[in-house]
Nucleic acid binder design. Structure first.
Lengths: 350, 350
DNA sequence: CTGTTAGCGCCTTCAT
DNA sequence: ATGAAGGCGCTAACAG
């Protein structure tokens, strides 16, 4: 069964006409048993279905798309190169995929870089996909203008600086700083280090980085505590080094905030190498980290973030609304933060 | 400029007929200035191009695909959920994307699970994509049969147990064990631990895991050294614990092999926590790890693996050959391993 | 150098 | 409950 001796992979596929002929019905009838858009007698339906399986018929996606004037495809833009694609990212993607699949859409992952607007323009303006979800959004994001010009419905997970007229879901980073600082301040911490996003992402206007830092700084000021921020490359090594810098520049540090997954791992390693114990000597609170990443280290990290699955779902629903022609309402959502206590923060023992 | 007050994103796009009318030429002429498949006078070419830009015309991908009987799309199957998508994975993808783009193909990333053969069958048999590249291949991989039935050209990066008739590129794992063991044995190591792939991947027949272990075991036997293998979950925590187990069960251990990125990080952390120094007290050699991952830990890990970019390129070339109708030749390639010494191995001081 | 004419495979409105 | 017929937007011979 494994090999058909003549073996031409160019065997032409059965078409709707073939099925119609074999079943002795008209072509449109074949379509109607597929779509169910019209009542068909059981008898002919059976004949048609038999013919379809006999011929191994599958409708041609391109022809369908052309006739229906819609591709049934959605693209999810995720510039994979920047920082990979981890379990927490997949929370969003999986949720969005699930929701849109229920409406008959297939989701494609577009891994190209943010700057690759040429490719993007192609898929967006050629009608290859019906709608787009953007992830890893920057404060100034060239993709937005490209998609706008292509007149294709799109929604952001994240947001740009100028997002009043955009459709998006995002975390409410403005609340992250206050919530985190209050938590630590109430435990008595007054000297707090922060291992933040890598410099280039920050400079490129990476939203979570910029917005979270801003709210941390404001909250620290309000609470009267000191925060020392380091922009650290996304590597354990850099995190390790940053930890030493922090202790040098702020000897009384009793807590750190994290906004950089790999770097935090390195920082924890540095702490452990120095015999610094968590949470006895140092409290650790990490932003926007997945369950997996948070419990992967030793000790596990208490964290503050959003529900990626919920956000992904909502993004998909917004997009479906746009695809459905809802053009008037503003669809925007900021998700509130929630904190998960995994025991890595405790009272200050200054 | 930001908002067009009437704001219907449903504005119908210009078609080839519109361009032809505006330029005062026939429709086919419009096509021919686009494809350049026929000489066109400079004068009419300019008129047509002017009309195109005036109307913002872009050819409809679906209609093109239908008429050409080819979509110009390729899918790269990568089940993202299993272990994420990291920098080393992107080496393959980027290389393959580049090569195929030069032939006018767009590469899509298909993140669905290996078991999701329904979705796969859809995109494969509906003519949505012209060819497929599979990654994360298992010894028994259901996707292969699905693609075969769909009669669509495909190539594996990796291979199944029964791959004689398949088109693939893969690492030559059979050489990994000997090369690694010889390296360590020649340094005097005789008690070697191995932190291997997680149990479920291994049981699912994850090729790199199964094949590498087999070659390690054989090579160890031949060299007369002892290897103790642990199947470890892909987390730092699990690696940390595995390290302790290894020392308990094999107190004289002086070297470890790694085949599990996160677990190795945990293992290194465990070593550092115990005051075990690398490479003085323990040699570390990791398989199939990217430059980034290898240099991310402290100390960096010497590693043994393949050139992902080269493999991705070759996979793409194989696929292009199949798409070009080359159906007879066997296209298979096993890439030799190469070792990168980052100083984490040294003489045994038993 | 340029136009005309069949399709590509399917959807969908009219008819019956 | 079923057929027939006209597109969807573009390609690719076939004619000049």
């Amino acid at each position: 069964m494994a090999s058909s001796a003549h073996g031409s992979s160019r065997a032409k596929k059965a078409t709707r006409a073939d099925v119609a002929k074999l079943a002795g019905v008209s072509e449109s009838t074949v379509s109607y048993v597929l779509t169910g858009a019209r009542p068909i007698s059981d008898e002919t339906k059976e004949r048609v279905e038999a013919a379809m399986t006999e011929l191994g018929y599958t409708p041609n996606a391109m022809a369908q798309a052309l006739a229906r004037r819609q591709a049934g495809l959605l693209a999810l833009l995720f510039p994979v190169r920047e920082r990979g694609f981890d379990a927490s990212d997949f929370d969003y993607v999986e949720a969005a995929t699930k929701v849109t699949a229920e409406q008959g859409y297939q989701m494609l992952l577009w891994p190209n870089a943010v700057e690759d607007t040429d490719s993007l323009n192609k898929i967006a303006s050629q009608g290859l996909v019906d709608g787009v979800i953007l992830m890893e959004v920057r404060e100034e994001d060239p993709r937005v203008e490209t998609l706008r010009e292509a007149k294709i419905p799109f929604v952001l997970i994240g947001r740009t600086n100028d997002s009043d007229s955009l459709t998006y879901v995002d975390a409410d980073f403005a609340l992250w700083g206050p919530m985190a600082i209050e938590h630590l301040a109430s435990l008595g911490h007054t000297s707090i280090g922060m291992i933040s996003a890598q410099p280039d992402l920050f400079n490129a206007g990476y939203g979570p980085g910029v917005k979270t830092e801003a709210s941390v700084i404001a909250a620290a000021k309000a609470a009267g505590v000191t925060v020392l921020i380091k922009h650290v490359n996304s590597s354990m090594r850099a995190g390790y080094a940053a930890m030493e810098e922090l202790y040098n520049e702020m000897p009384g540090m009793t807590a750190i905030l994290g906004l950089n997954e790999p770097a935090i791992i390195g920082a924890l390693e540095a702490a452990s190498a120095q015999g610094i114990r968590i949470p006895e000597d140092l409290s650790v609170l990490t932003f926007g980290i997945s369950e997996e990443a948070a419990t992967m280290t030793m000790p596990a990290q208490s964290s503050l973030g959003v529900d990626g699955e919920a956000l992904g779902t909502m993004a998909a629903e917004f997009l479906l609304a746009r695809l459905g022609g809802d053009d008037r309402t503003t669809l925007q959502h900021l998700a509130p933060p929630f904190m998960v206590d995994r025991g890595s923060t405790g009272p200050s023992r200054t």
